[in-house]
Design a protein around this nucleic acid. Structure first.
Length: 489
RNA sequence: GGCGGCUUGGCCAAGUGGUAAGGCGACGGCCUGCAAAGCCGUUAUUCUCCAGUUCAAAUCUGGAAGCCGCCUCCA
């Protein structure tokens, strides 16, 4: 089965056929770098990162462009407030963005162009639009795109320019020929950053950078353009207008838009004060849990961030790693002879409009099946079972490469969890004696030793007391054939 | 006002015509000194409601109710 993609342009799933076989060109709108990124940015980036990986896995050579908007009114506002130069501000938030995305195991796009690095291209683009009578400059140095010169305006967002003109929310601007005309170039006020242009000192409008930069790196038309749902109108609608008005051909074949992240079932908003930043979330949960959470719903559906949902994802992650650890202890090695049922299901899910939620479910199904097989074999698999489990492990690893989760060795995963639990425990103990992690670990090990002795002496009362003591420290004991192990719950 | 979306078990959530994935939780069982983990079974004769199309609908059509998003910067 081939890949199917939901195309916002037509409102339905379509078979994915790139313009050039074996090559996929995609452009995704990146952040405006005037502030710290929030969990919603993370979703968009993680979703498209996964899509990028899947295109590659299907054998395509992918050119992935994700821009930084580094010239914008909000940046200027921030600069005026802080006294910092715009370039200092944008550099700071670009670095921050990279650090956070690296933590979320997001691969860098092929190219990450910045608007300020492409002013010449932008000016050329605008000039071509003016030459084609698709845009006009007015006194004062503004340049506008003329909606009336592009008959298809409104197609992507399903809007009718007539209706919108009637809407009360469009500000009337006397300089515009049509109130819906949008800015391509705006003149600089004193103190604002500017570039020289045929229309005087000024800076580009928001939409034009994406048309100009995508043209620069991907050409007049390309395969995929993505971004958050909120960008459909006006941003992407305007990009289409600019690019198609100029080149007279289809700009983008497939438009892909991701849904929002809600916080406790509410939209993130300034008035609610619930903007949840990536760095806050990273401080609270392992990056892998966050990434898995972001992929646990279909990318077009809203997803709700809450303590409960994060906890649930975390437990699910434990389950997968516990299985891999079990395979490890049984001496199973990944083996790669042919693909298993898991891999087929995983591919079907990903091919169905990048259904990562379903893809993750296929991993859980394999885990259950694998556990059952191991139980049936009393933990001692014969050769054919070892092979089957090895295959399963191999396919979980393959899925991990796409999803960007389940990539750690189980021992590293559980070691990190222990370390975190230990740190929390030390931080929580308000005793005057400064408990360090190492002395705490020794204490735990000692209690476990005492319990082992008690059990040997059939003193189960004492053994259970020790278990209860550790339980109160959120430590769970597991008595296995090879002795007692412990973990944080 | 215009445009779009959503409503699936206690909770989260897949599922666009063929008879309800998966996770978390709960309960019962196996295992265990007792647990934990794992496994097995039970937890939706039914998918907000009403009507229609069809041999067949959670899935298509029409209507109702509730919720949400975009139309202004926003992932």
């Amino acid at each position: 089965m081939g890949l199917k993609v939901y195309n916002t342009l037509h409102g339905r799933k379509e078979e994915f056929i790139p313009l050039t076989e074996g090559k996929v060109k995609m452009y995704v709108c990146g952040p405006t770098v005037y502030d710290t990124s929030h969990i919603g940015h993370a979703r968009s980036v993680v979703v498209f990162d996964t899509i990028f990986r899947w295109f590659e896995k299907l054998g395509n050579e992918v050119t992935y462009v994700r821009n930084f908007t580094d010239v914008d009114d909000k940046i200027i506002k921030k600069s005026n407030e802080t006294g910092e130069d715009c370039a200092v501000i944008t550099e700071k938030y670009i670095n921050e963005f990279h650090v956070e995305m690296d933590a979320l195991n997001v691969r860098r796009p092929t190219i990450e162009p910045r608007a300020t690095g492409h002013i010449t291209h932008i000016i050329d683009f605008i000039q071509m639009l003016i030459d084609k009578k698709k845009a006009y400059a007015v006194d004062g140095g503004d340049v506008y795109f003329s909606i009336d010169a592009f008959s298809d305006y409104g197609r992507l967002s399903g809007r009718n320019p007539e209706d919108m003109r009637a809407g009360a929310r469009i500000a009337i601007d006397e300089k515009k020929q049509n109130p819906l005309d949008f800015t391509l170039w705006k003149p600089a006020k004193p103190g604002e950053p500017f570039w020289e242009s045929p229309w005087g000192k000024g800076r580009p409008g928001w939409h034009i950078e994406c048309s100009a930069m995508s043209y620069e790196y991907l050409g007049e038309g390309f395969d995929v353009h993505g971004g958050g749902k909120d960008l459909i109108f006006p941003h992407h609608e305007n990009e289409i207008a600019q690019s198609e008005a100029l080149f007279g051909r289809q700009f983008v074949k497939y438009w892909i838009h991701n849904g929002f992240v809600d916080i406790n079932n509410e939209k993130m908003s300034k008035s609610l004060g619930n903007f949840t930043m990536i760095k806050e979330v990273l401080a609270k949960y392992p990056a892998e849990v966050i990434r898995m959470f972001l992929l646990s719903n279909h990318y077009r559906s809203p997803i709700d961030y809450s303590e409960d949902s994060m906890k649930e994802v975390s437990l699910g992650l434990d389950r997968v790693y516990a299985f891999m650890e079990r395979l490890d202890h049984t001496g199973i090695k990944p083996c790669e002879t042919f693909n298993s049922e898991l891999w087929e299901e995983f591919c079907d899910a990903m091919n169905d409009d990048f259904n990562s939620a379903k893809a993750i479910a296929s991993v859980f199904e394999a885990v259950k099946k694998g556990n059952r097989l191991l139980d049936d074999a009393k933990g001692i698999p014969d050769e054919s079972l070892s092979k089957e489990l090895g295959l399963m492990l191999h396919d979980i690893r393959s899925a991990a490469g796409i999803l960007g989760i389940f990539l750690l060795s189980p021992s590293a995963y559980f070691a990190a969890k222990k370390e975190k639990g230990m740190a929390d425990l030390v931080a929580a103990s308000e005793t005057t004696t400064t408990d360090s992690s190492s002395s705490l670990a020794a204490e735990i090990e000692d209690l476990i030793r005492q319990r082992a002795e008690a059990r040997k002496a059939k003193n189960f009362k004492r053994a259970d007391e020790i278990r209860a003591t550790l339980q109160s420290m959120h430590i769970v004991l597991e008595d296995g054939s090879g002795g007692t192990t412990w973990r944080f719950e």
